[in-house]
């Protein structure tokens, strides 16, 4: 299958998951919101944990079924992974969403906040990659 087709199908599945979660539980399928709600002591832990277990288990199920891993190796060293994690967590908490909550669910609702947030985080990510790859020549290993 051409990678573009498989990406389109993957996107449709992500959308179906978002629609399913809205139909069943009335919730936005935003990963940062679902997961950070666990830390914030939300009273509805069970569905959040169940959803995250599904996300974690899916690639592993694929591995069992197809015998090949879909998980790529990290491309930056451990300290950069740690720094990136803090930025992603802090930023998505402050900004109220990530690629799924703003980028998919919010853009699908044509929410002004989500449209702006999505434009900003994609632009910031592209600028960051540009600086790292084309000005600094990489982060080393």
């Amino acid at each position: 299958m051409h990678p573009w087709i498989s990406s389109l199908m993957g996107g449709v599945m992500i959308g179906l998951s978002a629609v399913w979660l809205m139909a069943a539980l009335g919730r936005i399928a935003g990963i940062s919101g679902i997961a950070s709600g666990l830390l914030a002591g939300a009273g509805d832990r069970e569905w959040r944990i169940a959803f995250l277990i599904g996300v974690v288990a899916a690639p592993w199920l694929l591995l069992l079924l197809r015998g090949e891993s879909v998980i790529g190796a990290p491309v930056v060293s451990l300290p950069w992974m740690a720094a990136a994690g803090v930025l992603v967590g802090f930023g998505t908490r402050l900004g109220g969403g990530c690629t799924s909550g703003h980028g998919v669910c919010g853009v699908a609702r044509l929410s002004r906040r989500s449209l702006l947030a999505t434009a900003l985080f994609v632009a910031a990510a592209m600028a960051t990659v540009f600086v790292i790859r084309h000005l600094l020549g990489g982060l080393g290993t």
Partner: peptide, 17 residues
């Protein structure tokens, strides 16, 4: 239902690359 939604989401991410 939440588990199924998560599985579908994770499969989508995997297929998407």
């Amino acid at each position: 239902t939440a588990l199924l939604a998560g599985l579908l989401f994770g499969l989508g991410l995997s297929l998407a690359g």
